[in-house]
């Protein structure tokens, strides 16, 4: 069977999502976990664009607007996440996830 371009786009985004998932699960460095989550967010954006491009009867702006808002929220998330990494490092002198195992200050 031959793949349609939409299927190829979806396979691409699924593979990227799984790379991010494996990275987020396997690494114990907080920054790398955050970057894995960012990759997963990007895979979702790729899906939006793929369905906007090939989906049934696309309205010309919908997918693009979705992705613009998603990128804005992802940027806010990255800033807060990395600030949290710095705060945890200041507290524990380490950014390994297994060292940050208590909520008590």
């Amino acid at each position: 069977m031959s793949l349609s371009p939409l299927q190829l786009c979806l396979l691409f985004s699924s593979a990227l999502f799984c790379v991010g998932l494996i990275g987020a699960l396997a690494r114990s460095n907080t920054i790398l976990v955050l970057l894995g989550v960012e990759l997963m967010l990007n895979a979702a954006n790729i899906n939006f664009i793929a369905f906007w491009r090939y989906g049934p009867a696309p309205s010309p702006a919908t997918g693009v607007l979705f992705v613009i808002f998603a990128i804005a929220v992802a940027a806010a998330e990255a800033a807060v996440g990395l600030a949290l990494v710095i705060a945890v490092y200041r507290h524990r002198r380490s950014i390994q996830l297994q060292d940050a195992n208590s909520l008590k200050g």
Partner: peptide, 13 residues
Amino acid sequence: IAGFYLWAGAEFV
């Protein structure tokens, strides 16, 4: 990924 968006025709994104 930005290259993919360009390929798909979503230049602004």
